[in-house]
Structures are given as structure tokens and as C-alpha cells.
């Protein structure tokens, strides 16, 4: 009947208008759930690269996670040419150097200090120049590359941006973007 169809239409139209309001309200609610500006601002850590010493691991903090900063010495850079992967038996030289960040004349390993296996924090041996994860025996070399399983991949590299002699963690600079593209890090 004409009446009931017009009534049904009006009812649906009204329901539609109410729906628009409900969606707008849901949008506002979603935004209220977002991380706060102060949280997002704290998501950037600036590292002063001039403060680090060669072959001395320093643990920084970024977004609640430990960050390994290891300045490479000449000996470390030279020996990396000879590195062998226990996984593949092949030299890892080509991959190793690309894991490092070059600032000025110095090279640094900057990675998230969590084992890519199950998240424990590996320990660094200065003499062996390698990382050993006590939880399941995983090992990494002095560029963060995996040398002994079970870790599935090398230590992850955090997003970074080179700014003069400082490194800003949390921002994606061109060097980091290249590392992601070539699959060096996730």
C-alpha cells in the first residue's frame, strides 16, 4: 500500500540519518583510543653518535625496547670480510657491511637488542666480537648477522634517520628505506 511504503521509506531514511550520526560517533571513539601525542612524541630517540667508543656495546632505549649501538673498529671491519655463516657456510661479507650505518668516517651497528627467535636480550662478548643469546644459544656476529640458529634472521634494525652526527630513531631516513627494500631488515 502506498502509505505503508512511504512510511517504510521514511523509517529507513530516518534510520539512515541516525546511522550517519552513529558512524560519526564511532569515528570519534576510535580516535579517542589512539595513542596520545605525548606517547607518539616519546617514540623518537636521538642518539649522539660522537659519544660511542669502538667495540663497546651501549644499550639505549627506544619505544620501550633496548637498542644495541656498537661502533665498529678497523679490526672489526676487516674481519667482517672473513665472516662465515654457520647457517650457509658461505661468506657473509657482502651482507654484513650493508647492515652497518655509516656516519662520517665511522660505521655503527644499530639494532633492536631483542633476539629474533623469542625476544630475549643477547649478551655481547668483546673478545669474540659476537652476541650470544642465553635462552636458546642463538649467536650473532658484530654486525647483528645470525651465525648460529635458532634465530630466523639477523637482529632487526629500527627505523632511523641520519641528522649530522646524530641518529634519530623512529624516523625513516633514505638509508633505512634502502635497507628495507633490499631485505636487510623487516
Amino acid at each position: 500500500m502506498k502509505n505503508s511504503s512511504r512510511r517504510g521509506f521514511m523509517g529507513k531514511a530516518f534510520g539512515g540519518v541516525a546511522g550517519v550520526g552513529a558512524i560519526a560517533a564511532l569515528f570519534a571513539m576510535k580516535k579517542s583510543w589512539d595513542p596520545l601525542p605525548s606517547v607518539k612524541a616519546a617514540g623518537f630517540t636521538t642518539l649522539d653518535m660522537s659519544a660511542y667508543k669502538e667495540n663497546e656495546l651501549v644499550v639505549e632505549k627506544w619505544r620501550g625496547k633496548p637498542i644495541f649501538v656498537l661502533k665498529q673498529s678497523k679490526a672489526m671491519l676487516e674481519s667482517e670480510d672473513k665472516n662465515m655463516s654457520q647457517l650457509t657456510g658461505k661468506t657473509t661479507a657482502a651482507i654484513d657491511k650493508t647492515r652497518l650505518i655509516k656516519i662520517g668516517d665511522a660505521h655503527y651497528m644499530v639494532t633492536i637488542g631483542l633476539c629474533t627467535h623469542l625476544g630475549c636480550i643477547p649478551g655481547y662478548d668483546k673478545d669474540e666480537k659476537s652476541f650470544l643469546c642465553a635462552c636458546h644459544g642463538g649467536k650473532y656476529d658484530d654486525t647483528g648477522m645470525v651465525t648460529k640458529s635458532p634465530p630466523p634472521r639477523g637482529l632487526d634494525i629500527p627505523p632511523f634517520k641520519i641528522d649530522g652526527n646524530t641518529l634519530v630513531l623512529g624516523e625513516e631516513g633514505p638509508e633505512y628505506k634502502k635497507m628495507k627494500e633490499t631485505g636487510i631488515t623487516l
Binding site: 570519534a28 571513539m29 580516535k31 596520545l36 601525542p37
Partner: peptide
Amino acid sequence: YTIMREVDFGWLW
């Protein structure tokens, strides 16, 4: 501070 200034639409609630 937090609700009125920081949270998106916090002032609205």
C-alpha cells in the same frame, strides 16, 4: 590535561 588536551575528542566526552 590528558582528557581535555591530549585525548582526541576527550574534551567532547
